[in-house]
Amino acid sequence: MLYWAVVCLIVAIIAGVLGFGGIAGTAAGFAKVLFFIFLILLVISLVANAMKGRGPKL
């Protein structure tokens, strides 16, 4: 999911440089949503692992 957020961010940057404001805004908004969903899932995963008593695998 983080991969798609980065892809949308790159598309937004390229579209912004080329002057496509609407596309850039939409892609940037989509990247933000995906990034925050990724962060929420990461926090849930970390909390779930902490509740089980296991640390991260190193």
Rank of each mutant, 00 (worst) to 15 (best):
L18Q: 12
F20I: 05
F38C: 03
V6Y: 05
L2V: 02
G55V: 03
G55H: 07
K57C: 04
A27M: 05
L2C: 04
L42I: 03
L39C: 14
G25T: 05
I13R: 14
V17L: 15
L18Y: 11
A50F: 15
V33W: 05
C8V: 06
P56C: 04
A48D: 11
A28C: 10
L34F: 00
V6G: 04
G21N: 14
A48L: 11
G22E: 12
F36G: 00
L18S: 12
A5D: 00
T26W: 06
G19R: 13
L42K: 01
I23A: 14
F30H: 02
L46A: 08
I23N: 08
L39T: 12
L46M: 08
A48R: 12
G29N: 06
F38D: 00
A12C: 09
P56M: 09
F30L: 12
K32L: 11
G19C: 15
V17F: 13
I10L: 06
S45C: 05
G21K: 14
A12S: 15
G21Y: 13
F38S: 01
L34K: 01
I44M: 04
P56Q: 07
P56V: 06
I10S: 09
T26K: 03
F36T: 00
A48M: 11
I44H: 04
A28F: 11
K52D: 15
F35A: 02
V11A: 14
G29D: 09
I10C: 07
F20V: 05
A48W: 10
F30Q: 02
V11G: 09
A15Y: 05
R54H: 15
F38P: 00
N49S: 09
F36V: 00
G25W: 04
G53A: 09
